[in-house]
């Protein structure tokens, strides 16, 4: 499986040509720099996931730090039947889900001040662009609407459609059935597609 990596973000220096598994092995063998290199290789993707999931910058930072510390501490328990990046994604996902559960029954923030930078940026940009040109960028619309999807739908879509995990991997990670993952993805995609239509971005002939 190929996962989107470092899209849009400035490429971080990664002169080390070792594979993820080799870096993890080096870390376990005592190489103090190996894990840091591994983190730098994947942190933009995982930061984006945490930020979009939690929509709170501080919570996302805490989640990412906590997840990387756990991965560092228990690297020896990594099982080679999964890609290292998927293993890291699972760890981050578990920490993110714990944070989401811990703050319930609070609801999804309705005001932009309560949302994270990514959501705030996306929504503001979408409105501004729409006002200026009568047409918004589809990516900005999708990004903005992701922020207001229910947590369950957003999690499923972030893991399947954005992070590139399979439906089965997502079900395993979230602890729900495959059918539930499909259903949450369907509902979430329908809302996003509806938003594209509403903003004139959908390629729906009329």
């Amino acid at each position: 499986m190929t996962l989107p990596r470092e899209q849009g973000a400035p490429a971080e220096p990664s002169p080390d040509q070792r594979s993820d598994r080799e870096l993890l092995a080096a870390h376990l063998a005592g190489d103090r720099d190996a894990f840091t290199l591994l983190v730098r290789r994947h942190r933009a993707r995982l930061w984006t996931y945490a930020l979009r999931s939690l929509r709170d910058r501080e919570e996302a930072a805490e989640a990412l730090q906590d997840a990387f510390v756990r991965a560092h501490r228990y690297a020896g328990s990594y099982r080679a039947d999964a890609e290292v990046e998927n293993w890291l994604t699972r760890i981050v996902t578990r920490v993110v889900l714990d944070k989401i559960k811990a703050r319930r029954p609070s609801t999804v923030p309705l005001d932009e001040d309560a949302a994270g930078d990514g959501a705030r940026e996306g929504r503001a940009d979408a409105v501004e662009t729409s006002d200026a040109h009568g047409e918004v960028d589809a990516q900005l619309t999708v990004k903005a609407m992701l922020a207001v999807l229910p947590d369950e739908q957003r999690q499923a879509i972030l893991l399947v459609d954005v992070q590139g995990l399979s439906v089965a991997e997502t079900a395993d990670t979230l602890g729900i059935s495959v059918g539930t993952v499909k259903s949450r993805c369907a509902r979430g995609r329908a809302r996003l597609a509806a938003a594209l239509t509403a903003t004139g971005q959908g390629r729906r002939p009329r």
């Binding site: 990596r5 470092e6 899209q7 973000a9 930072a61 990516q139 459609d161 329908a190 996003l192 597609a193």
Partner: peptide, 22 residues
């Protein structure tokens, strides 16, 4: 087709740069 477009847009979403302090 609109639903398919939605999936493509999701797959193409850019990553956010990690802030320096984070």
């Amino acid at each position: 087709g609109l639903l398919e477009q939605t999936r493509l847009e999701l797959a193409d979403l850019d990553d956010e740069p990690v802030p320096d302090d984070v």
